[in-house]
Amino acid sequence: MTLLQVRDLTVTFPTPRGPLDAVRSLDLDLEPGGALGIVGESGSGKSMTSLAIMGLQPRAAQRTGSVRLRDQELVGLSEAELRRVRGDRIAMVFQDPLSSLNPYYTVGLQIEEAYRAHRPGTTRRVARRVAIEALERVHIRDAARRVDHYPHQFSGGMRQRVMIAMALSTEPELLIADEPTTALDVTVQAQILDLLQEIRRETGTGLVLITHDLAVVSEVTDHIVVMKDGVCVERGPVEQIFTDPRHAYTQALLDAVPRIDDEIGALRAVTAGGAGDAAANDKKDGGPA
């Protein structure tokens, strides 16, 4: 059975000039254990998609369509029912691990709280052991001591490991990682990507990886959805997208990626579909939220 099936997902914001679709009629499919990449530039609606899957879109936004996790429809669930899915069956890892962790609490407490939210009646001692094990699983050395440290006492890469540990503590079926390595140094990025791959291999957790970085998705995922202005312009197996892109935007995007292997003359500018420099869609991040 399909792990995640999204149909006709639309997220609409009211604006003074009328409703604006941050995401429009999006379909996604992910098989159990698979890895789906959602690629796009700023304003493409890729981050809003991840929040909308969890029902975490901003309050002003309206979400329609269907999001099915195995056989459960998530659109239309009550807050209480959604809470049982969030963090338990679907977990999330965000871009900036420092601001995504609460600076006032130890990382242990923050992992314990994720676990206990879905395992009522768990004692603190058990939850603490879960937290230490989760930290060990993401290869944080000396986990029994580090569990009592605060987020600011970790380096950027270590903080992202903490976020991943937190997400994994409940053994979710699906992990959504929204630009998980964008804020990290390249060597640290490689380690985090390796870790995500390792987790997929060992636990069979499905992965949705959202990123602007085409090279990253090409290494990590098996299917790709290319988004632009809230719409999916192209989808397919990773090899097909990278060897035989059909949509002009995908082609232009691939032409624009600087290669480390080679200097390739003038980089071709993206112009297809008005995505060029002059278009308004290269504003900073995040969509119209």
């Binding site: 969890m54 975490l56 807050e79 209480a80 809470r83 049982r84 899915v85 969030r86 963090g87 338990d88 977990a91 999330m92 965000f94 900036d96 601001s99 995504s100 962790l101 609460n102 600076p103 609490y105 709280e113 994720a114 939210a117 879905h118 976020m163 937190m166």
Partner: peptide
């Protein structure tokens, strides 16, 4: 703050998110 979003994403109920985070 992002960490409040994280708290909701963990499935914490609103009263707890408010009180603690």
């Amino acid at each position: 703050e992002n960490y409040v979003r994280t708290a909701y994403a963990k499935g914490l109920a609103q009263p707890l998110v408010w009180r603690r985070h």
